[in-house]
Amino acid sequence: MNLAPLNVALVGVLGLLGIGMYGLLMTRNLIKTVIVLQILVKAAVLALVMAGSAAGQIHLGQSLALTVIVADTIVAVVGLALAIQVRRRCGTLDVQALATLRR
């Protein structure tokens, strides 16, 4: 088994995850939050493909990846739709302003 591409992919997964988590913790813009979520999902997609190849079932990995992409596109669409509504009702996309529900 050729390890080198897997290692590259692993670096990719971890890098995307790092960026995603950092973004999720730091970003205040709702649109950016949705984008960051997509980055996290892409990390997971990459991980699935990688896992499929490591397990010798690359076709399985690929089909999982495709399914995940489709499913999470729906989530992204819903997220963006909500963002539009938020912008319209609250006049802002800042998630820190979106903190009226507390305690």
């Binding site: 913790l25 820190q96 529900l101």
Partner: peptide, 17 residues
């Protein structure tokens, strides 16, 4: 304890992490 429910999304993510 009620102060832990800040309503801040980023803080909620901290909970998950």
């Amino acid at each position: 304890l009620r102060t832990t429910q800040t309503g801040q999304l980023n803080w909620n993510i901290v909970g998950i992490a």
